[in-house]
Amino acid sequence: MKKVDIFVGLLLIVLSVATWITAGNFPSVGDTDVGAGFFPRLIASILLVLSLILIASGYRRRGGGDEETGQTSWKQTLLGFVCTFAFLALICLCGFFLSTPVFLLGFMWLLGYRKPVPTVAVAVLVTLFIYLVFEKVLQVPLPAGLFFE
């Protein structure tokens, strides 16, 4: 049994049913046009069939649980997700140019890379590079953050 496939299959069934229902309220004008709901409903029904196949093949597959990769590596990726979303929140609050060095330093440190000179150099140089390329050359104002607006 492949639990992931079954879980994904169920999720997609919910998605296709929801799409089917929502698309029922879409308008259709004239005799020749199939209307705004036709394609979404068509795709949703194909997706429904595919999800059922996915679930069925998930059940049929022999041999215990899912193959898991090493526990430590999974933790690193989870750390990556957390750091990235924390970074996004930080950008909203303190702006891009304050958050970026903090993120780079913190993330490298958490990943276990702790040599002081290279980490600080990377944090400063990357931020400077982005400042020059985006703010100066491309003239894209990067977010300043709630505190500094």
Binding site: G80, C83, T84, F87, L88, I91, F96, T100, F103, L104, F107, M108, L111, G112, Y113, P118, T119, V122, V126, I130, F134, L138, V140, P141, L142, P143
Partner: peptide, 21 residues
């Protein structure tokens, strides 16, 4: 990689922001 990956993530964020601000 510990240096490279954080940099790539920063570039992803700046890049996707810059398209439409």
């Amino acid at each position: 990689r510990e240096i490279l990956t954080p940099i790539i993530l920063v570039l992803c964020i700046v890049g996707s922001y810059a398209i439409n601000n």
